[in-house]
Design a protein around this nucleic acid. Structure first.
Lengths: 156, 156
DNA sequence: TATTGTTATACTCTATAACTATA
DNA sequence: TATAGTTATAGAGTATAACAATA
């Protein structure tokens, strides 16, 4: 019932691994997207943006958000606009550079984010319930090697 | 420079694992999408559909494609239509059920797919170049456990 | 009645490129 | 000239729901 149906014995192990990696990610991601929509009427990119801000009390500049979210600048403007409209984040002036903003959570945004993050955490813990602590650690470590390997796609 | 900036020490290991899993998948996926576009003027879902058909010489029914690709039926119709227009796949009657089709690769589609698959394989082997055979096997096995755990999202 | 597949629609996310304002 | 951010645009990808034909 999934992408892995593509993989067969004569294919290199790397390909079988990739299809399994993709399947796992998509399964979890779909579940997270659905839950965010159903329970909080929001989307993954919006959650992701707020999530980046949660740990930066003074806020982050647009280009920093763009880099971290791995999307181009125009998209960050769009998502930020939505969240500003809803009073969840705000644009603040940057001293000494009138071109730039810092985007940060409003108190209301922070409160809502905390609610969402708590649920989100539970969904994710659930998703990995089949692994024990050691396996989680091993998986984390192995994926760290993959991440190092992958030629970091440059984001404009 | 990535989604993992979201993860911090007080968060459960599962969350840190999830963010890393997501980052790895996105990095590789972006590279594959770019290469498919640049080198073959095609997209990942189109490649995926052809890929499903490559191992089903008699073809697959629309709902089977939908299930395997984890997308709803209307999308499969759209992608199939595009590929039919380009002469890469064809719809064939199913005996005893005039509602259904089998979609299968045309000879030309099969040839093109083989070219693409060869390149694709190389991109993927590259992506995991930092891991040795044993690590690849471990990672595959651990992700197998994740896949089993995840409540299979029902696809309509 | 249920199922297969199609059509129509709308929305989110994305990249690209031209643009404005400031450095 | 270069940089920060915005705007405008187009296209990919998706889900939903109403629909036609057949089982």
């Amino acid at each position: 019932m999934d992408l892995e149906a593509r993989a067969h014995s004569e294919h290199p192990d790397e390909l079988r691994l990739w299809l399994r990696l993709l399947t796992c990610t998509q399964l979890i991601e779909k579940q997270v997207r659905n839950s965010l929509r159903e329970q909080f009427s929001t989307t993954l990119p919006r959650f992701d943006l707020m999530s980046q801000l949660e740990r930066a009390p003074e806020g982050l500049k647009m280009n920093e958000l763009s880099r971290r979210m791995m999307v181009t600048g125009g998209n960050v403007t769009g998502i930020t606009d939505q969240l500003v409209t809803e009073g969840l984040v705000e644009r603040v002036d940057v001293a000494n550079d009138r071109r730039a903003w810092r985007v940060r959570l409003t108190p209301r945004g922070r409160k809502l984010f905390n609610d969402m993050a708590q649920k989100h955490e539970a969904w994710i813990v659930d998703a990995f319930a089949g692994l024990n602590a050691k396996e989680i650690s091993q998986l984390h470590k192995l994926l760290g090697k993959v991440k190092q390997t992958t030629p970091t796609t440059e984001i404009a």
